[in-house]
């Protein structure tokens, strides 16, 4: 097993650091339905951490707990060594946790560049008065943040559609723009909700490459949800497996692959 504090080095030589986020005994209920039942796991600095499971396992609910969209009834969320009190989703975003959505949530009426620029909002500090009168500070800030946004746009190879309204883009590109917006926030933790959902093989390969590149280039810690086992196993350093709201496996892809509970969940053994 892994050492709790030190971190480790992956087979391909990347350094995985200490724990960034820790979920402790999380339970989430909707009325009488238990979506997440007493789950604990951690996310380490610099790793790609996947949460997988069959449909309805509670993966998206877990991601929504991390990003503050759902508040669990029980359990503790620890981020960067501090227990997180009850927070609103926008406060979570301001703490440096960016996310994408399973059913793309972009600003459809705005251009790609504007969408990516909204990702920089958490880094823009000037107040409403200096913004309104476009004082020097506001202008300098806009320029600096624009540079970061353009760099991300270049990195994800969407320069050619910078000025295009998002509503005109095909699905695969929208997914990439959403990733760009999340990346623009220079997040300390990036959450991807089914980044490959609804994509063809080629688009999936592209997206996988981008996820690996982002992790490699910026050292971004990534937690992602996916139900396509194959993609996840190639991509991630460690995997949490959920089924019916419970954690049934946690470890490296190889460990998870050989876990009997996981095999049962995916091959559909009768639950008794």
């Amino acid at each position: 097993m892994l050492d709790a504090s030190e971190g480790f080095t992956t087979e391909d030589g990347r350094r995985i650091g200490g724990v960034v986020m820790e979920m402790k005994n999380i339970t989430l209920r909707f009325g009488g339905v238990v979506a997440i039942q007493n789950i604990s796991f951690d996310i380490r600095e610099g790793e790609i951490r996947a949460i997988i499971g069959p449909n309805g396992a509670g993966k998206s609910s877990m991601l929504n707990v991390i990003s503050g969209f759902y508040v669990p009834q029980e359990g503790e969320v620890w981020f960067e060594g501090r227990q997180r009190p009850k927070v609103k989703p926008y406060e979570v975003a301001r703490q440096g946790i960016a996310r994408t959505f399973q059913n793309i949530a972009l600003f459809e009426g705005m251009s790609v560049l504007d969408n990516v620029m909204t990702g920089r909002l958490t880094h823009m500090k000037t107040g409403i008065l200096s913004q309104s009168f476009w004082l020097g500070r506001a202008e300098a800030e806009e320029t600096a943040n624009r540079e970061v946004a353009e760099r991300i746009i270049d990195f994800l190879e969407i320069q050619h559609i910078r000025k295009t309204p998002v509503s005109r883009l095909p699905y695969g590109l929208k997914k990439r723009v959403e990733l760009a917006r999340a990346l623009a926030a220079e997040p300390r933790l990036l959450l991807l909700d089914e980044p490959m959902a609804g994509m063809n093989v080629e688009e999936k390969e592209d997206m996988s490459r981008f996820i690996l590149d982002v992790n490699d280039e910026f050292g971004t810690t990534i937690a992602l949800i996916e139900h396509d086992m194959g993609v996840v196993m190639d991509l991630s350093d460690r995997v949490v497996v959920m089924d019916y709201g419970r954690k049934i496996g946690d470890g490296t892809p190889d460990e998870v692959r050989n876990n009997q509970d996981v095999i049962d969940a995916y091959l559909g053994v009768a639950h008794d």
């Binding site: 600003f107 009426g109 705005m110 913004q131 476009w134 806009e142």
Partner: peptide, 24 residues
């Protein structure tokens, strides 16, 4: 052209997405 204006347009467009980029 302002940060708050951009946030305003973002909120007008999609509440969930606006929350995810840290807009109150």
């Amino acid at each position: 052209y302002t940060k708050q204006g951009r946030a305003m347009r973002a909120v007008a467009d999609d509440h969930q997405a606006a929350l995810s980029v840290g807009i109150s």
